[in-house]
Write a protein that binds this DNA or RNA. Structure first.
Lengths: 335, 335
DNA sequence: TGTAGTATCCAAAACGTTTTGGATTGGAGA
DNA sequence: TCTCCAATCCAAAACGTTTTGGATACTACA
């Protein structure tokens, strides 16, 4: 029944010695250690994770709560990131537990349940909002966490984020240099931090060129959202010559609206996105975009969680990464 | 320190009574139960999950191992399914732990670690293969699991699957009825069970119409894979008038290859896919596809796992679901 | 020979619950 | 008054580890 007990029994050793042999302590003879290791291998003994966790006082568990909105709103980006996080954490013998909740009451209750029941000893917080109650709560409870994205918190917190502001600034400046003047921004909801940052980059480049940053609208960051906002801009008397979209999914919707209006993307109107989703290479024409490589982010997120759990200082766990630009034909650039 | 102990102490009750009060046993007075409940609420007491699991002997944990291939190969479909599973499991106070491994040695080692260390008491197995060692292993160890997709196992196993065979059969028959004769299949690797099933449906419809099912090629189910296979078919002397793709991502790649060759999708050549990814509505023209709704599958998968853990018979947990067809302009159908 | 030091092992406590098997009390019925 | 039963509570065991604080035997050295 009790696994380490039977193993110890069959070897004529105490469970203490078996435990210490397998953990590589120096106070067990090399010969004994080998004997124990071999026997454990043979019977496929592996310490019961729950018991070890209880004794050690650590759950060895990191929680990832997916924000799910009602309706079709999944983030393709999550899958790749999750795979990277899971892969990396399991190398450190930690489990990634995945939960899902709609932002709001459900989400708050879930966080409380996880923290109070000690079901997770660290969190990864994604899709950060400008005023983010998840961050407030975790700070207040003193639970370690790493954000993917920034927030408007006064107290310091650990994060990794793509430099969306610099990315959109560079993109906008590039397009202005190519002669564009009426540059519209199709933004995601600005309660989301990433949308705010990207908008700031666009606005800054416009200001530097002495252009008015008036052509901005925000909506859901889906194909449909992009389609709706683009249609609105197309109806203008003086329509924009560029539509900068907050995400590739929005850009796909915008491209469709433009073509439906009998115009040619990349010729009559430039379109750009963000994320470099696989399909962006296969739109017609290929979509100009930029990205923060999700595998790397996932891996780094996992590393940062482990460092935080190891006691690393929050201030050493704040990273802003440059985005990789992919200029393509949808903005009259690239191949 | 010890949470239930302090709570009991502050109430002047034994920990037994506190525990039973919170669990709703009938041998504690109604008044006491209320008193305990209120006190627990006030101090935010929640039983330590690890301790409860150890005592109860159940990990309350379901594992989901994502198959990750090297290179860019994420499945957008996973994210939505995972969200649904996570949401549903957590209602039953179970955790979904997410791991990732490349099919092969890594994957086998991971399964062993999970099972032997009792880190999971049930599994969800996705992207099933015709000869699937994960299924063999779990059957042999007697660990409960549910497959998304079928496999060639002799022993019974629990699964939920879309009826890809019927779906591709219906689609092919529909296109034959519209006058098509040279119908090509752009298949995913046939080691994957879903690819085999879909191919079977296509082949059957061709046979019923007395047509030769020779135009078939297989490759990675990505945009690039679809592009490559489509290019190959376009080089044929007598090129196909339909390209049925195993997935929407392949279809997106195929559409691009066709347009690059100066042909018009939906007019010169019909293209179809499978998955109904959000972008499929926004390709030009909109992509004919079909789907097994992932939210429903995720939820059902979670339910089935709970039933299996509750001792339900495997034979009652085998479901094949019809696909929802979405005929659109890429095959000259729909709006 | 005695003693200190080292190498190797182990019994028992602890982690925070749930559950088992009573113990105690008070009231109803004889 | 005594017995029995129901209602309410509780002490202690158990879950399977890890860790603490020795115990034992052997070696080396004086």
């Amino acid at each position: 029944m009790s696994s380490i007990r039977t193993l110890a029994g069959s070897l004529g050793l105490s469970i203490t010695t078996v435990s210490r042999a397998l953990d590589g302590y120096s106070d067990v003879a090399a010969a004994t250690r080998e004997r124990v290791r071999k026997a454990a291998d043979e019977v496929g003994y592996r310490p019961n994770a729950t018991a070890r966790r209880l004794r050690r006082g650590t759950g060895e568990t990191v929680a990832f709560v997916m924000p799910t909105e009602p309706g079709r709103f999944y983030e393709p980006v999550f899958a790749e990131q999750l795979a990277a996080i899971g892969e990396h954490l399991s190398q450190h013998h930690h489990d990634l537990v995945l939960l899902a909740a709609r932002p709001g009451a459900d989400e708050a209750a879930l966080y409380r349940r996880l923290v109070e029941g000690r079901r997770a000893d660290a969190f990864i917080v994604v899709r950060t909002r400008r005023d983010d109650e998840r961050v407030h709560y975790l700070q207040q409870m003193g639970v370690p966490f790493i954000c993917h994205g920034r927030t408007d918190s006064a107290a310091p917190y650990a994060y990794i984020d793509g430099d969306g502001e610099a990315g959109f600034h560079a993109l906008t400046a590039r397009l202005i240099a190519r002669g564009h003047r009426r540059i519209a921004l199709l933004s995601a909801p600005t309660t989301l931090m990433f949308a705010t940052r990207r908008a700031a980059g666009w606005r800054k480049a416009m200001a530097e060129a002495g252009l008015l940053a008036t052509l901005m609208a925000e909506g859901p960051h889906t194909e449909e959202g992009g389609h709706t906002l683009a249609s609105r801009f197309l109806a203008l008397a003086e329509r924009p010559t560029v539509m900068i979209c907050a995400t590739d999914r929005m850009a796909v919707g915008a491209m469709r609206a433009i073509e439906n209006a009998g115009l040619k993307v990349g010729h009559d109107i430039a379109v750009t996105g963000h994320d470099n989703i696989p399909a962006s290479l296969y739109t017609d024409p290929p979509l100009t975009t930029m990205e923060l490589p999700m595998r790397e982010v996932g891996q780094r997120l996992a590393e940062m969680v482990m460092m935080r759990l190891g006691g690393a200082d929050i201030r050493d766990l704040q990273e802003v990464r440059p985005l990789v630009q992919h200029p393509r034909a949808s903005s009259g650039e690239g191949a």
